[in-house]
Design a protein around this nucleic acid. Structure first.
Lengths: 141, 141
DNA sequence: CCAGAAGCAACAGCTTTTGTTACGACTGAG
DNA sequence: CTCAGTCGTAACAAAAGCTGTTGCTTCTGG
């Protein structure tokens, strides 16, 4: 699969929003974010619309409008962002139902489901340890 | 992305190989594995070829040949399997280079790389806790 | 009213995954 | 040695997802 870069784009946008805020600009347009991420403004709006649905940013339309952080950057974790933009699970079960006449075909799915959940939770717990503010602190200014 | 199910197919094949071994059959053909997984034999051979390259199974060609476990099922972890069949990273950086004139564009990539590595390692550590033998033990017999 | 910006649908190009067919390479049985 | 059975692998098609693009609609402050 084309590994998706939505978390990267969303995290980049949020970091840029926070840096702009510290410099006195509370809102940025999708064009301004797209210029930093180096992609199309529609791609940015798609990501930021996801974040908007999750309450991580606010969006105002109209002349002079744009996007702003929905809450302090220290209170937005990478997990929040990942959950907002990543609809797909990390690991998928069989695409077609396995053969139920085989003991493995009958029994393996609930086991793998549990194991995949555990691995996904470990992954998520790691993402939850870092906030957007932390990302800015780790960047050279 | 179509989330890939290679880990599922490979784990299923290994569990089936181990169960067959306990019943006295040390090798299975790709057709027999495919019948349990309910997919095409070529798909199974592709997965098992990956596992073969990683040393997790042995493959013998010729009349009466097939695949067998390369080492005890208790010594094959899901992480071994994942590493053998999953070429793609869990999280991708920007597809195109961000704008280097922006401080975020310049600085965010090494930070995200580190954070993604940490999350991936947490994920891998979770997979490493379970072996193929554990999977069989968690299945109803 | 209107200019500017978000919201959104539709489409194309690309990549990945899965599935299928076909065929070559190898090997044990006879 | 022959041959049937099996792995190994290439080529191809269908389906799905991601990115990027265009164009239009909706909203809102001036």
């Amino acid at each position: 699969m084309a590994a998706n870069s939505r978390l990267t784009i969303a995290a980049h946008a949020l970091a840029w929003l926070e840096l702009a805020r510290r410099r006195g600009r509370t809102t940025l347009t999708s064009d301004e974010v797209a210029a930093s991420v180096n992609t199309n403004a529609v791609i940015v709006r798609r990501s930021l619309t996801d974040l908007h649905r999750a309450g991580l940013v606010t969006a105002r339309r109209g002349n002079g409008a744009g996007f702003a952080l929905g809450r302090p950057a220290a209170e937005i974790t990478l997990l929040d962002v990942w959950l907002a933009v990543s609809p797909e699970p990390l690991l998928a079960l069989h695409r077609t139902e396995p053969n139920l006449e085989c003991p493995v075909g009958r029994g393996i799915r609930p086991v793998l489901t549990d194991l995949y959940d555990e691995a996904t939770q470990a992954f998520q717990a790691s993402l939850a340890r870092t906030s957007v503010a932390d990302i800015l602190e780790r960047m050279p200014t």
